[in-house]
Write a protein that binds this DNA or RNA. Structure first.
Length: 109
DNA sequence: GGCATGACTCCCA
DNA sequence: CTGGGAGCCATGC
């Protein structure tokens, strides 16, 4: 469990219903712009044990792209339930992208 | 340590 | 808009 991971988890948990964030966006806010893939990995391994709204995390194109086909359908359903319009596994990022207020204090810095 | 892999992203045709 | 190629980085063998 690295600091990067903690921030990623915190950021994801801060995403309100009906909004989404991209992997790169989260990685950047967590302190590593190149960590998009790591964010994806974190979701894959942590989503089961933690209460993470992983369905609100999508790629830079606004598409739902997951290794598991079932997971893709699940994510689509969850987003639709929250009022996010999903067309062919794609959404309008310009309408649903969430810009979090980063105001937590990194005490160890 | 090297090599392959991936729920990514950016850039260009 | 779609497709191909290169870059990045943690993880696992």
């Amino acid at each position: 469990m690295t600091h990067f991971t903690e921030r990623v988890v915190q950021i994801i948990q801060s995403i309100p219903a009906g909004k989404v964030m991209t992997y790169g966006q989260i990685a950047t806010l967590a302190g590593n712009r190149r960590g998009a893939r790591q964010v994806a990995r974190i979701l894959h391994s942590m989503s089961k044990k933690h209460q993470l709204p992983w369905h609100r995390v999508i790629n830079a194109k606004g598409e739902i792209v997951i290794s598991d086909t079932e997971g893709t359908l699940t994510q689509k359903e969850l987003l639709l339930q929250e009022g996010v319009l999903v067309l062919g596994n794609k959404i309008r990022l310009e309408d649903y992208r969430y810009y979090p207020t980063v105001n937590w204090v990194p005490e160890d810095m």
